[in-house]
Design a protein around this nucleic acid. Sequence first.
RNA 1: GCUCCCUUCGUCUAUCGGUCAGGACGCCAGAUUUUCAAUCUGGAAAGACGGGUUCGAUUCCCGUAGGGAGUACCA
Length: 470
Amino acid sequence: MSDTPVVTRFAPSPTGFLHIGGARTAFFNWLYARGRGGRFMLRIEDTDRARSTPEATDAILDGLAWLGLDWDGEPISQFERASRHAEVAKTMLENGTAYRCYSTPEEIETFRETARREGQAALFQSPWRDANPATAPDAPCVVRLKAPQTGVIRVNDKIRKKVEWRAGTLDDLVLLRSDGTPTYMLAAVVDDHDMGVSHVIRGDDHLINAGRQSLIYRAMDWALPVFAHIPLIHGEDGKKLSKRHGALGIMDYLAMGYTAATMRNYLARLGWSHGNDELFTTEQAKDWFDFPGIGKAPARLDFKKLDNVGLFHIARSDDAELMEEIAAYLVQIKEPALDAETAAKLQAALPIAKNGARKLPDILEKAYFATGTRPFEADEKAAEKLNSVSVRVLNELTAALQHANFNKEDLEAVVADFAAQKGIKLGQIAQPLRAVLSGRSVAPSVFDMMAHLGQEESIARLNDAVTRGR
RNA sequence: GCUCCCUUCGUCUAUCGGUCAGGACGCCAGAUUUUCAAUCUGGAAAGACGGGUUCGAUUCCCGUAGGGAGUACCA
């Protein structure tokens, strides 16, 4: 282990929302830095002026914020550093590792077509590479990297290990466009260098770029960062993620009701593992995360597994935290916020309602008995449990409840005794009881609900049903 | 086309030459049971294929197939 401080970065291009793959890349970078007392930085790669928008930048920041991935310092705009990039290109021009190329787009296209037709690699070979500068026309030009034509280009990757390209299979990439703006290849290298980035953790789709970019590092005589190219995430059908798969954006998961802690755990396990550990906290992930645990093959999204992870995390979330998650969830699905009274009722019922919930809406559903108000109208399924017989039984139960202590244990005993006396099964009482207490067929334990509601409210709901049943 | 990468149960994965190939989700069966769940017990389920190397390969090497990425004055 080197003693240089760890600096990682997430460098999205602001052309859309933060997608699930990008979120995981950001998370891995965050984990690596945070687990080692390093810095995690954010750089917005907005050199493509036509496609970059401030809205997309905001959306990405929102996504990271929701996931709880905090970054150090201010996000860096790559575009604003254009003059520094041009300066580096100029240095390369001066030290002979780059050249001006006056070929027009049409000429390049013709070259490629010919090459392709002849079955050759379609890498453009500029006639200006070794041309005498004196013969240069007074025309717009790009600045190209002078890629080596002999030997091999080798990159050491933490995950792929040694990756090599034969010189000549990497082209003379454009560093500066004809309008003087930098391309991604140049800008990314210069920024990573200037920001002191020690570890570049990014998607597998950049593996070849590591080879290309290493040439720029060498041209400038800069130390290379540690590269780690992580496998991509595929859709449930194993194909590349696309619109067809839905749930592409990280915020779509909030809209479905998954909590941030759930997503962090699930995302961490997609492509990374720590022995047989499946369910863990973000703190543990920070301690454990390292390159040897990262796999090589792309992973697929599995919502069933995600649900299961949610079960674990909701159960262990603290109530105040869950209330915040629920508020964010409601905003995301464009539902009105909870009023103070309902919120208070919900929070009080959380210890009961979060039991067995995988997603936020599950909690809301189970908490309805506490957030709703009398009289409770039984929904269709609940109504099936109510008939003249069951209502009569409930009426009799009410009497038994008059003298009960309203805690779970005593209530269980009282109701069990009552059932024994009547010679009926517990279920024959519990189900209609659930219907009158919550108006639903899906709700927490009837004893939990009564203990939570208290004697007065519980009996009032029983009486509502009895009155209506007459 | 060319360059590079990848390949263990349906899915996520463990294994770092010798294991009855382990775990998790899901699935199936059973238990529990006041609903949906949850919980508990048990079960089926995998090394893409073909060659090597080796006393011995899932593990190392080569090839094939399949998948992916790149091949832009996009990032």
